[in-house]
């Protein structure tokens, strides 16, 4: 609570419209170690990331533990999510071969979903996917998997067809080849990581600024007067709207990350597409 008071004391709504920190990056860089083990820092984000993995495992475990033919409510929900990834993403996008990639896509979806959920989880309220480490490592995994799948299925032709694309006029081949190479091997992982990262950063910034401003304006209503207090109420309403919107974004970004991973794998194993 001292930190809370600290934060509110830094914000003077008689001077500012919105309680923004001097640098928005301050909202994200929590790199204070809780403890240090042999010089290796265990930070809050570190703990949250491990926790997200454990929660994802626990959800799947408790959802699918009882293999009942007639499922309960929770089992139906988890089975719905798992079945959605299997039918719509793995098999729906990749085709019959998708079953092989289903465990990867499922763990991707569940892990990102829980990691994003921390954005709106009370007392956590920090999307760990807004730290670049998580999106970057997952995008790198997808990158490696789709390249490996391409080589496994097509051999060296996989790269050759990208650099020297068939079915393109010879004069254009170098140009198209370079563009394709860059877009496949560089832009894909980068945009995959940045999409998730940027969405969560934006959501976290909006929620934090709006809800903090609203809270501070309610707490300090005696100093700032009733007119500004009403402004604070408006910020609060807007914050609620964005809170609901963020729920959609959380689901959608987890889905899109999984979907795009599936699409990338599909394009490397089915080239004539």
């Amino acid at each position: 609570m001292e930190q809370l008071i600290l934060a509110t004391s830094e914000c003077d709504l008689t001077q500012q419209t919105v309680c923004a920190p001097a640098d928005v990056k301050e909202l994200f860089e929590y790199r204070i170690p809780i403890i240090e083990i042999a010089g290796f820092p265990i930070t809050r984000t570190f703990v949250l990331i491990i926790l997200a993995g454990l929660i994802a495992v626990a959800l799947m475990y408790f959802g699918l533990r009882r293999k009942r033919a007639v499922p309960g409510r929770f089992q139906t929900a988890i089975e719905g999510l798992v079945g959605f990834v299997k039918d719509e993403v793995a098999i729906g996008i990749i085709g019959p071969d998708g079953v092989k990639y289903f465990p990867y896509l499922l763990s991707l979806f569940m892990f990102i979903l829980i990691a994003n959920m921390f954005e709106i989880t009370p007392f956590v309220n920090f999307p760990i996917t807004s730290r670049m480490a998580l999106p970057a490592s997952l995008a790198a995994l997808t990158w490696m998997i789709f390249i490996a799948a391409g080589f496994k299925r097509q051999g060296f032709r996989y790269v050759a067809d990208i650099i020297w694309p068939p079915g393109v006029p010879t004069a254009l081949k170098p140009l198209v080849g370079v563009i394709e190479f860059v877009s496949t091997f560089l832009v894909r992982p980068f945009s995959l990581a940045v999409r998730l990262f940027a969405n969560m950063v934006a959501g976290h910034v909006m929620l934090t600024l709006l809800l903090t401003t609203a809270f501070v304006s309610i707490v300090t209503i005696g100093e700032i007067g009733i007119t500004k207090g009403l402004f604070g109420f408006a910020w609060w309403l807007l914050g609620l709207a964005i809170f609901l919107f963020e729920i959609v974004v959380i689901l959608l970004q987890a889905y899109i990350f999984t979907l795009l991973s599936a699409v990338y794998i599909e394009t490397s194993i089915n080239p004539a597409h």
Partner: peptide
């Protein structure tokens, strides 16, 4: 969603 994801990437690169 796929199309939106690809299009959105440009705005997100600007964001970065």
């Amino acid at each position: 969603f796929l199309g939106i994801a690809f299009t959105e990437a440009l705005a997100l690169i600007g964001f970065v």
